[in-house]
Simulated scan of single mutants.
Amino acid sequence: MISAATDRFMRIDEVISVTGLARNTIYRRMREGTFPRQVRLGPNSVAWLQSTISEWMSSVVEGTSSVDQHSH
């Protein structure tokens, strides 16, 4: 459940900064299903929930995600 008191929306530039991934990598991984999808805030506005990004980062660290195990 989303709690507005503990969660917030992050725009793409902040997601890039926090994750260290490039914009193209984020969108490619979203297509592959290995990165959280954004939520639509309006007709021309999208963002990611901070909690979703944090959970994804934890899963990568814990090794439950195979995202960073592929060679480029």
Rank of each mutant, 00 (worst) to 15 (best):
A4N: 11
A4D: 04
A5G: 05
A5E: 14
T6M: 01
T6F: 00
T6C: 02
R8P: 05
R8L: 06
F9Q: 05
F9R: 07
F9K: 08
M10W: 14
M10A: 07
M10H: 05
M10K: 01
R11W: 06
I12V: 15
D13M: 05
D13E: 15
V15Y: 06
I16Q: 09
I16A: 02
I16C: 06
I16L: 05
S17I: 00
S17E: 15
S17D: 15
S17P: 02
S17M: 07
V18S: 01
T19V: 01
T19D: 06
G20R: 01
L21M: 14
A22I: 12
R23N: 09
R23W: 07
R23H: 07
N24G: 06
N24T: 13
T25C: 15
T25Q: 14
T25L: 14
I26K: 04
I26Y: 03
I26E: 01
Y27P: 04
Y27M: 07
R28P: 02
R28G: 07
R29G: 13
M30G: 06
R31S: 05
E32P: 05
G33Q: 12
T34W: 09
T34I: 12
P36T: 05
P36D: 06
P36M: 08
P36N: 12
Q38N: 11
Q38V: 00
V39E: 11
V39Q: 08
V39I: 11
V39H: 14
R40G: 10
L41Q: 11
G42I: 07
P43G: 08
P43R: 15
N44Y: 10
N44G: 10
S45H: 08
S45P: 06
S45G: 05
S45M: 15
V46C: 02
V46W: 00
V46D: 05
V46G: 00
A47V: 12
A47C: 07
Q50K: 13
S51R: 04
S51N: 09
S51M: 02
S51C: 12
T52G: 04
T52E: 03
I53S: 00
E55K: 01
W56K: 11
W56G: 02
W56V: 00
M57E: 01
S58A: 09
S58G: 09
S59I: 01
S59H: 13
S59W: 04
V60C: 15
V60M: 13
V60D: 04
V61G: 00
V61Y: 09
E62F: 04
E62L: 10
G63A: 06
S65N: 10
S65G: 06
S65L: 10
S66T: 12
D68E: 13
Q69E: 13
H70V: 15
H70S: 10
H70N: 13
S71E: 15
S71G: 12
H72G: 09
